[in-house]
Design a binder for these strands. Sequence first.
DNA 1: ATTACAGTGTGATGTAAATCACAGAAACCT
DNA 2: AGGTTTCTGTGATTTACATCACACTGTAAT
Lengths: 186, 186
Amino acid sequence: MNQFREHIEAIVPLTDAEFELIYSHFSVRKYKKHQFLIQEGEPVKYAYFIVSGLVKLVYADALGKQHIVSFAMEDWWESDFGAYYTQSKAAMSLICIEDTEVLCLAFDDYHKLCATFHKMEHFFLMKSNFGHVGAQQRILSLLTTNAKERYAQLLKKSPALFQRVSKTMLAAYLGVSRETLSRLSA
Amino acid sequence: MNQFREHIEAIVPLTDAEFELIYSHFSVRKYKKHQFLIQEGEPVKYAYFIVSGLVKLVYADALGKQHIVSFAMEDWWESDFGAYYTQSKAAMSLICIEDTEVLCLAFDDYHKLCATFHKMEHFFLMKSNFGHVGAQQRILSLLTTNAKERYAQLLKKSPALFQRVSKTMLAAYLGVSRETLSRLSA
DNA sequence: ATTACAGTGTGATGTAAATCACAGAAACCT
DNA sequence: AGGTTTCTGTGATTTACATCACACTGTAAT
């Protein structure tokens, strides 16, 4: 909770009263490894702030092959935002890689927060802007580099991930086969 | 200008006075085909709203090969947002494919707009959210499909593009070589 | 403890797409 | 109009990577 407050205050300062009111829009939930926060085909009720743990956002293609759109860990926000913003069915699943604790924000609470606190709208704008830029960098990485370079880039950018997720999952994130990834690290 | 107002009012309604004040934060500029709106390595002063015309956001890799991060046409916003938000040097170039008219928004005017008009902050939040989702879909497309499918997807999603840009550029956008693209369409 | 399964490495083979190379067609100067 | 540059198609060759197949390990489940 303090961690959450600091996370917000890194962008917008808050009074105690403001924080209390903001915090009251969230609910705490805990999940075990392998549990689903979002299941493909189901409505997406919440966006999640990860307090602790690690999750993956997974898309299963027509052949059932799993692709990892993103990982999210402590202090990250995650959801199937496409479905969340349009309040439609999930195209992807959000699954725990470790036991995970989250703060859940329902869609209308998101709007209430934005409408009530100019600061929070600003906060979310900053987050969204930088999320957008991050996604664009991933596109660039996929367009410009081969598997080996992408592996090196990720190792440099998120060394923590390598301790916490299997190589199989890293491969699904990098868009390479498991076998190729195995041969790369050598 | 009416077009611009409608573009904003599709998300947030405005009074005449509000629109006037908002509009005064922008400056109009016209560029010819082949001109640069943003040059790699230079500071990024503006985000652009495209009134008419067509531009490409291009990244040149270490070998000088050109990759197209995105196209932007009428009613789109474009910039090297990574550099714009952090007010640093451009990593990419923004180049006209056709004669283009834009509305320029300087970075501090962007902040002023957001600070002054809650509505505009909301407007930008919506734009950023959907931009983020769009980028994520592009990532998914790059992860899950081969060149042929990506070509088919783009043809379905943006048929207008095919009338206005060369196949060479389409290839640079799809992440395929010019030659391979040529063989695909057959 | 024994089974079961996810994770990993490594060889052999197949394939999509890159690269190299050339030529004709279209668009653009001045 | 004539020359330059860009765009495009098509063949031949090469390469990065996927796929298939198998074996070994560590971890979790009963």
